[in-house]
Amino acid sequence: CEDAWVAERPALRFADQQVGVILNPSASHFAFGKHHIRQQLLLAGSTAIQGVYVYANLVGNEAGRAIYDGDTMIGSAGKLLASGSRFSYQDVVLTTAVAEVQKSSPDGCIDCLFEFSQSEESRVETGNDTSLAAGVDAWEQSEFLKEEEFARALSLALFDYMRKSHSRGFVLSLSGGADSATVAVLIGLMVRFALDDLGQDGLSQRLSHCVDGELPDAAQQWVYELLWCVYQATRNSGDITREAARYLAESIGAQFYELDVDAVVEEYKSLISGVLNRELTWAQDDLALQNIQARGRAPSVWMLANIKRGLLLATSNRSEAAVGYTTMDGDTCGGISPIAGTPLN
């Protein structure tokens, strides 16, 4: 594992010891562009020993935080022979290749240093097109690779966390805005990706605990069972956000509920007005009145999540957290926050 991040790479030491095969089992968290870095490290390591380098990474989500992509690669003497599927929903992914392991000799080892740089001079010349390696999925060649990785990483993380926590799905306060819409779509993609990878029987086996009665047999039916979306209106809500939330939920197949929480918000306002002996006004109490609307929506979705035995999804993003543009116990409330590390751009 250290071969991917320490300055004095073990692969270089092994080259001096005439090692012919290096096995690198790793728990390296996902980051954009990291697959390419790992690939270059693997090629440099196999070049250094003029032998075979096998890399296998952990897959899934741990503790609702770190995401692992399940990256697997096999290289030999500076060439990539095979690359397995990333972000797989399978329990095991087997990546294979046929490579010749020659008897090593000190003369056969190459002094190969890898530098973390994007300059052409520092890259390892592989002599082959790595995109043609066996096992590379078509989406890996997309011009929108970052967007593909984003969707697949977070969808897999949500699936794995739900599975490991034995939750029966998700509850989401759907506002009609971009953040909650993104989270809802990730659940839809989660189901689609899982069905593509596992098939109907495989998905049913893994998520049978989420459904009472007959198991779904189509993607939208699975989304309907797994995701409850709730639009919570006050007197300041508009038809545009309400209809946007409804349309999105119906488009992906989620259950959609509408609650009027205006009375809850007004009751809190009345309580505080009594404490202060004055009426609360937007001119004087703007921030507090905005925040109580967000906080007033939390108890009902928490209650639904408890009843469903599901995970309440928070919708705050990284940009909002960085500047403090968020409501504690409002859009930050939830059991897991899928886009907390994602900036608006």
Rank of each mutant, 00 (worst) to 15 (best):
A157L: 07
S175H: 05
T241K: 11
S180R: 06
E147P: 10
R206I: 09
R168A: 01
W222G: 02
F150R: 14
S180W: 06
S167C: 05
R168M: 02
E243V: 10
L280V: 00
V183Y: 07
R163S: 12
Q221P: 03
R206N: 10
M190A: 12
G253T: 03
E250P: 05
V223S: 03
K269D: 01
D201I: 12
Q205Y: 10
D201T: 14
W228N: 12
V223R: 01
G169C: 04
R278P: 11
Q200W: 11
S173E: 12
C210W: 03
S204Q: 15
M190T: 09
L259A: 04
Y161L: 11
R192F: 12
G202P: 08
D262H: 07
W228S: 13
A178I: 15
L227H: 04
A153C: 10
E279D: 15
Y247N: 14
P216T: 01
V223Y: 05
S273F: 02
A244D: 04
E214S: 12
F193R: 14
M162A: 07
A181D: 06
Y268C: 02
V223C: 02
K269M: 02
N277Q: 15
N277W: 02
L207V: 06
R206D: 10
L154W: 05
A218Y: 07
E149N: 14
Q205T: 13
D239R: 14
E147T: 14
F193P: 11
L248N: 03
R242K: 12
R168I: 02
E279W: 04
A157T: 07
I272P: 04
Q205R: 13
V261R: 03
V183I: 11
N277Y: 08
K146Y: 12
A151Y: 12
H166C: 06
F150G: 11
R163C: 08
D217P: 02
T281G: 00
N236A: 14
H209G: 01
V171S: 03
L158A: 07
I187P: 05
D179W: 10
T234N: 01
L280G: 04
R163Q: 14
F170H: 08
S155W: 04
S180F: 07
D239H: 13
S270A: 06
V264C: 00
